[in-house]
Design a protein around this nucleic acid. Structure first.
Lengths: 140, 140
DNA sequence: AGAAATTTGTCCGTATGTATC
DNA sequence: AGATACATACGGACAAATTTC
């Protein structure tokens, strides 16, 4: 099997499906998820991919994993005052200035800008995407 | 080589060493870290282990990674920029999801999103442009 | 108590896809 | 277009914690 990930990578697709089961109650709070070895069969993915999908859910705070025991769904603290803050996983890339950005920075359209992107999640659901544009740093 | 990890796992040890270089200034702010392929040679670890070590630093906010470019140290934090916005000129508009946003929100490309744009100025000079994307207000 | 089975944790090597230079 | 660098995915192996018998 090649490694095509045109749209979303497989671990994200798998993570979304597992999250759906948890939020819909198919996997009730506190219950154990199927073992990684079971999930590899079900999703026909390698264990590494399964583990990465679970890692997404764990960082989102809706599952917890114990060595030797398994991964179980977390009791949802919905409605409570506690709302988990976002995890800042920042990714950067170079982009070209669109007309709006060019006007703001007073540069030509197409000038290189640095874009920094973060995904804001609350309780595992994506709330917003923040993109910050700056002029590329000059000195170092 | 077997897989001994008596004390700390290797990726943590490597992450600590890289962190030391960043915080001590051996890798100055904004500078690129050595490529993953270089680090595999230096630490005699597989690329997967190197990537995991870098992931630790990324989640800690010490580095930011760009796809074909590399990983560089001490990216500016979003929070610091956002906190300095005393007089943000905020403007909202509807936009269509580009492929990246579509993948993050798990919607089709072209789906309507709400964009909130602010210009961050410090002492009259434009520091950054912040764009926040959200799904449109839905009924509930 | 002890051994075996189960399950997650770490690590390696390789291959291929995708973005950037 | 080629080279470089990061991203995803596979399969295998062994370690460590837990549970089960």
């Amino acid at each position: 099997m090649p490694t095509p990930h045109y749209g979303q990578p497989r671990y994200r697709v798998i993570a979304d499906q597992l999250r759906e089961r948890i939020e819909s109650g198919v996997i009730p709070p506190g219950a154990l998820l199927p073992a990684e070895s079971v999930l590899t069969v079900e999703f026909r993915a390698s264990r590494g991919t399964i583990r990465r999908a679970i890692a997404v859910l764990r960082e989102a705070g809706l599952v917890a994993t114990s060595h030797g025991r398994g991964t179980h769904a977390n009791p949802r603290h919905h409605g409570s005052v506690l709302n988990k803050s976002a995890d800042p996983e920042t990714r950067e890339r170079h982009v070209t200035a669109d007309p709006q950005l060019a006007a703001i920075f007073t540069v030509d359209v197409g000038t290189a800008l640095l874009e920094s992107e973060s995904v804001i999640q609350i309780d595992g659901t994506i709330e917003a995407v923040v993109r910050i544009y700056r002029l590329p740093r000059s000195i170092s």
